[in-house]
Amino acid sequence: MLRLSPSSVKQDRWTKYKLDEKMGVKEYWLVDPVNESVEIHIITGGQYQFQGVFTKDDYTSVHVLTGLELDLSEIFI
Rank of each mutant, 00 (worst) to 15 (best):
M23Y: 01
L2H: 10
F50R: 12
L68S: 07
S5F: 11
F54C: 07
T66P: 09
T55F: 14
D58H: 14
F50T: 04
T44C: 13
V62S: 07
D32V: 00
Y28G: 04
V34T: 03
L4C: 08
E36N: 01
I75Y: 13
T60W: 08
K22R: 07
D58V: 01
I43S: 06
L30W: 01
G67R: 04
L4A: 13
I40W: 09
H63L: 12
E74K: 15
K16I: 09
E74C: 13
L2P: 12
M23S: 04
I77R: 15
I43E: 04
T15H: 12
W14G: 05
S5L: 14
D32W: 01
S7F: 14
G52K: 13
D12K: 09
D12T: 00
K16G: 10
M23F: 03
K56Y: 13
E27V: 01
D20E: 11
V31I: 06
R13P: 02
L4H: 06
K26C: 05
E69A: 15
L70M: 10
Y28V: 02
L70H: 05
K16E: 12
Y28F: 10
D71S: 09
K16W: 12
I75L: 15
K18Q: 10
L19V: 00
K56L: 13
Q47A: 11
E21L: 09
V31N: 04
K56D: 12
N35A: 06
P33S: 07
Q11G: 06
S8E: 13
Y28P: 04
L30H: 03
G24S: 02
G24E: 01
F76K: 09
V64L: 12
I40H: 10
S61G: 05
K26W: 00
S5G: 12
V31K: 03
V25D: 03
H41R: 04
S7P: 09
